[in-house]
Amino acid sequence: MINTMNIDGHQAVTVFDSELDLFRGEFIGLNGGADFYAGDVKGLRHEGAISLQVFLKTCAAKGIEPRKNFSGKTP
């Protein structure tokens, strides 16, 4: 089952990884990968906030727009 979580205004898809015995989250709509793991939901939210801030700071430092732009056209 796939769930979503809103962290600081950004949506993340969350799942439970039974092989790792951890919850995994990955932000959607960003120009790059920003994923995070934790053993419980509270930890997942905390780790997600950290992952998002690192991603956004990196984008700002490189002058990259952090969100994907959707044109509606196929490549």
Rank of each mutant, 00 (worst) to 15 (best):
H46I: 03
L22T: 07
F36S: 06
I28D: 06
F70V: 15
Y37T: 08
G72L: 04
A60N: 08
C59D: 06
D21E: 14
L20Y: 02
A38E: 02
D40A: 00
L22A: 08
K42P: 01
N3K: 15
I28A: 08
K57Y: 02
T4Q: 13
D35L: 03
L52G: 03
K62Q: 15
F36Q: 05
I7W: 04
F16I: 11
S71D: 12
F36L: 05
P66F: 03
C59Y: 01
Y37S: 06
G32F: 08
A61E: 13
H46V: 01
E26W: 01
M1G: 13
D8Y: 08
I2L: 12
E65Y: 03
G72H: 02
G63S: 11
T4H: 11
G32I: 06
P66H: 09
T14F: 02
K42V: 15
A12N: 06
V13R: 13
F36T: 10
L30P: 04
G29Y: 11
G9L: 08
K57S: 14
F23K: 04
G63P: 13
C59P: 04
E19G: 14
R67S: 07
F70Y: 15
T58N: 09
G32V: 07
L56I: 03
F55D: 01
V15L: 11
L56S: 05
G48K: 09
A34P: 03
E26M: 05
K62S: 12
T58D: 14
K62P: 10
A61V: 00
M5K: 14
R67W: 04
R24M: 09
Q53P: 00
A34M: 09
L30R: 10
G43T: 07
P66I: 04
L22N: 05
K73M: 14
M5G: 08
V41S: 06
T74W: 03
S51E: 10
M5D: 05
K73L: 14
Y37F: 13
Y37L: 09
M1W: 00
N3R: 15
V41Y: 12
L52Q: 01
V15A: 11
A34V: 12
L56W: 09
V54R: 10
K62R: 13
M5N: 05
F55T: 02
F27P: 02
L52S: 01
S71V: 10
G29Q: 11
F27L: 05
F23D: 00
F27C: 02
L22V: 10
H46Q: 07
G9M: 05
G29R: 08
G33E: 14
K68Q: 14
R67T: 03
G32Q: 08
G48W: 06
G48T: 03
V15S: 11
G9A: 11
A49W: 02
G9W: 01
F16H: 14
G33M: 14
